[in-house]
């Protein structure tokens, strides 16, 4: 499998970006109404909030309070928008998953393929909340909170704020450190194939900066990956051992104590 081509396609260009949710060009216009639906529904709570704010404070003795609180009003609306966008898109995703349960495997990239169509639809629904959550000063909202909304398992004390993690088929254990600018992809696109495979990262793993982890990778407990390296499809990194290179190869056999 030519894994280098996948790397070219999906490495995001900026440290600020959210998790990558690509959508096929051919399906973009067809699924655009879903995108608008998520935006429209997530704006409703804000409109309600503003309505009550104005009707409550735009009275004779409260004018000063109205203007003093206007800066806080803006901050509250920003976070309310993010929260409602996350909530509504995760509800829509649950409905989509009830209609068609996502499977793991290798699929054809035809428009007739049901799996491929629903994968695009899920990405389209996730696009708006993941984008809006990435543009805020609280880094833990981007990955830890947003991805847990979509059902990704991320353990406690996990340090993964400055990386791009796919929003499906990823399991991350406790005390994991994932480096700055690393990409964890549970999907890959080869010429005419779509590959969806589960990534499992066990406890106490350290992944260096700017690593790329391809679909199907299993990282066992305490393994360490050097920065600037990538793993192949279905690669296994063994317990307490140090890997490096492109693709990752065993560099040193470590012990439990280290």
């Amino acid at each position: 499998m030519n894994s280098k081509e996948v790397l070219k396609m999906f490495q995001p260009a900026s440290l600020k970006g959210g998790s990558s949710t690509p959508v096929d060009e051919r399906l973009r216009y067809k699924y655009f109404p879903f995108y608008l639906l998520v935006i429209f529904l997530s704006v409703i709570p804000i409109v309600l909030f503003e309505y009550f704010y104005i009707t409550f404070f735009w009275k004779e003795p409260f004018y000063i309070i109205f203007f003093i609180l206007i800066a806080f009003n803006i901050v509250i609306t920003l976070y309310l928008l993010q929260f409602s966008a996350l909530l509504i898109s995760s509800l829509l995703i649950i409905i989509v998953k009830l209609i068609h349960n996502p499977n793991i495997g290798v699929f054809k990239r035809n428009l007739n393929n049901k799996e491929y169509k629903y994968w695009n639809l899920r990405n389209m629904i996730k696009k708006w909340p993941l984008f809006i959550v990435a543009t805020n000063p609280f880094p833990w909202l981007k990955n830890r909170v947003a991805l847990r909304f979509f059902g990704t398992k991320i353990g406690r004390n996990c340090l993964c704020d400055n990386s791009w993690i796919s929003s499906e088929f990823v399991e991350i254990g406790k005390n994991v450190i994932i480096g700055m600018g690393s990409t964890i992809l549970s999907f890959g696109i080869e010429q005419e194939k779509l590959i969806l495979k589960k990534i499992r990262i066990a406890d106490n793993v350290i992944i260096g900066a700017k690593c790329v982890i391809l679909p199907g990778t299993k990282i066992h407990e305490g393994a360490k990956l050097n920065s600037h390296s990538y793993t192949l499809y279905d690669q296994e990194l063994k317990k307490y051992q140090i890997y490096s290179g492109h693709p990752a190869e065993l560099k040193k056999i470590g012990n439990e104590g280290q």
Partner: peptide
């Protein structure tokens, strides 16, 4: 040195 890892700044405790 066997491997270079990454920055380790936990960002939650001082939110």
């Amino acid at each position: 040195i066997e491997f270079i890892s990454t920055s380790g700044v936990y960002k939650t405790p001082f939110t």
